[in-house]
Design a protein around this nucleic acid. Sequence first.
DNA 1: TTAATACATCGTAGACTCACGATATATCGA
DNA 2: TCGATATATCGTGAGTCTACGATGTATTAA
Lengths: 113, 113
Amino acid sequence: MELTKTKIDLLPMEKLSEAAACLKVLAHPVRLRIVDALMQGDFTVREISEICEVRENQICEHLRLMQNCGLLGSVRVGRTVHYKIVSPQLPALLSCVRAHCGDAALPDDCMEE
Amino acid sequence: MELTKTKIDLLPMEKLSEAAACLKVLAHPVRLRIVDALMQGDFTVREISEICEVRENQICEHLRLMQNCGLLGSVRVGRTVHYKIVSPQLPALLSCVRAHCGDAALPDDCMEE
DNA sequence: TTAATACATCGTAGACTCACGATATATCGA
DNA sequence: TCGATATATCGTGAGTCTACGATGTATTAA
């Protein structure tokens, strides 16, 4: 009938749409692994390909998606291109993922559900 | 040629796949808004429908997806069903989303780096 | 039992995503 | 310049996601 009893303050839909787009990009096991690796250092496409055991053209595509929404950055060094994390929120977000994965390397209040 | 120079320690792919599945469920503007609302209290399907300005059958579908991967829980009270957040990681994750949205109203959980 | 309310599910069409092989571009060394 | 290495892009088919209307189920009141 009426609008909800409680007055709540919500993020605007356009912001949520943009955030959802970033989350959608992150929501892929290989891309999560790429981020997980880049948390521990910068790597080239070939290195990431080896780490993930995924062909380089697919890695390029994953990297492009993540770069396009501001999660990663890259620098060319000779013939190689080094990728790194640039989004300030990404480390915290990966911490949530690690916590969700039951990894003990994080706060204790996130062990199960 | 060889495996990467640096020894890095990575989450196993099956864990990442499960985390990716949860992130994929979250990666939708209406579902983010539902979580944003549920952070401020429990609501019924009808209330969520009004908050999101989305038909109830679609809301049910969104709620079902989020419940299936352990993000939300529900309790029936008479003829209504009240939904709430049950995943311990969800508040921190939403803080990241809020931070990404440039909102200043967040705990210190996701600010590092 | 019947009607009304609240919630949930189903079938479907259109859009989107993914992995793949093929191809293209850029840089370096000879 | 040429060839090799390293990255990047493209076209395609299979699979997946979304919103929609229609239908199904559960609870309450009369």
